[in-house]
């Protein structure tokens, strides 16, 4: 099931290559993409590495238009995220909430905060200490995909769990 959905995502990503940030896993700025410099981390095959968290478990969940309710697929991802956090207590997480560009700037900040909080509440419900989690909203300021179609908007309505070693700032 997990493999299947990942394969679907991959196909989707290839199909949308024209309007998708090709540097999806690169360190392209401010952590806003959830980008992690995997060069300085353990490899993706190490289950305790942030790269594994990001790429194998999945660091992001997507939302419907103007919604912050978690989809069944999102709760599945977040359940695995919570398990990983339980197994790797030395890490903390910053949860970024994002919105697509179809909304006014300040409303989207509030919406992004709501989305990030939905993720945080779920992770806490799964036993992650709230002291290890922090939320931030980017509203529509940091889209991942830059086209102005639903294909891109769907990727931008997201909450990204960014793993960091050590404490929260």
């Amino acid at each position: 099931m997990k493999l299947h959905s990942k394969a679907t995502l991959l196909v989707l990503a290839i199909g949308l290559a024209a309007c998708t940030n090709p540097d999806r896993f690169g360190a392209s700025g401010a952590g806003a993409n959830g980008g992690i410099d995997s060069g300085s981390m353990s490899g993706v095959n190490d289950p305790s590495s942030p790269a594994y968290f990001q790429q194998t478990i999945g660091d992001r969940v997507l939302f419907a238009v103007d919604q912050s309710t978690l989809t069944p697929e999102a709760t599945q991802t977040l359940t695995l995220q919570a398990r990983w956090l339980a197994n790797n207590p030395e890490f903390t997480a910053l949860i970024e909430g994002h919105a697509d560009e179809q909304g006014t700037r300040e409303y989207n900040l509030a919406l992004g905060a709501r989305r990030a909080n939905s993720v945080m509440e779920f992770l806490v419900s799964q036993g992650v200490s709230p002291a290890r989690l922090k939320t931030i909203t980017y509203g529509k300021e940091r889209p991942l995909a830059v086209c102005s179609d639903e294909a891109c908007y769907a990727q931008n309505r997201r909450a990204v769990t960014v793993i960091a070693a050590g404490g929260l700032s």
Binding site: E106, L109, A110, A113, M120, E121, T137
Partner: peptide
């Protein structure tokens, strides 16, 4: 706290803004 959407009152002293806490603004 996350704060945003500030605006001055006509007295130049009062500030209105949104504060987001626990996902609620």
């Amino acid at each position: 706290a996350m704060t945003f959407a500030p605006r001055f009152g006509p007295d130049g002293q009062t500030v209105l803004f949104s504060l987001s806490e626990g996902g609620n603004s």
